[in-house]
């Protein structure tokens, strides 16, 4: 893999059944490129949590994944409500997800902490009423 590869996915809003399809596709592509299983799992988990968040909180958005020989960069951009208090949102167990989402197995308040845990770098740019862009880097 000499050159960088860019993958782009449009995440549909309100389709919880399909949430995770993009992460699943990235996982398959990374495996076919021969990326180490450890790095693949980190990318898959972090991106899946982010993808679920975009469906639950932000009416979908765009995910861009840049794969280069030394790192994988995921950029998750949505036009959702923004995150009023990032520090609070990063606390394990803090969640604003509605009960219907909890009954589907999410909204435990572990999404952002998991994304941070499985990536080497994570930055959150958020503007209330405009949207949130999360950039995550996993080193290979």
């Amino acid at each position: 893999m000499a050159e960088a590869i860019r993958l782009t996915y449009e995440i549909s809003p309100d389709d919880f059944t399909r949430a995770g399809e993009a992460s699943s596709d990235v996982k398959k592509k990374l495996r076919s490129l021969g990326v180490s299983p450890d790095a693949i799992r980190k990318v898959a988990i972090a991106m899946y949590e982010g993808e679920i968040n975009m469906v639950i909180h932000a009416e979908g958005g765009i995910i861009t994944v840049d794969i280069s020989p030394d790192k994988i960069v995921m950029i998750l951009a949505d036009k959702g409500p923004g995150i009023p208090d990032i520090e609070q949102a990063m606390q394990a167990g803090w969640s604003t997800a509605p009960n219907e989402i909890r009954s589907l197995g999410f909204g435990a308040g572990m999404g952002l902490p998991n994304m941070k845990k499985y990536t080497d770098e994570m930055t959150i740019d958020t503007v209330i009423g405009k949207g949130t862009t999360i950039t995550m880097v996993v080193k290979i």
Partner: peptide, 12 residues
Amino acid sequence: NPQVIRTAEMLD
């Protein structure tokens, strides 16, 4: 639901 299968997939 389907997310159980996806979760299992992500975690191998």
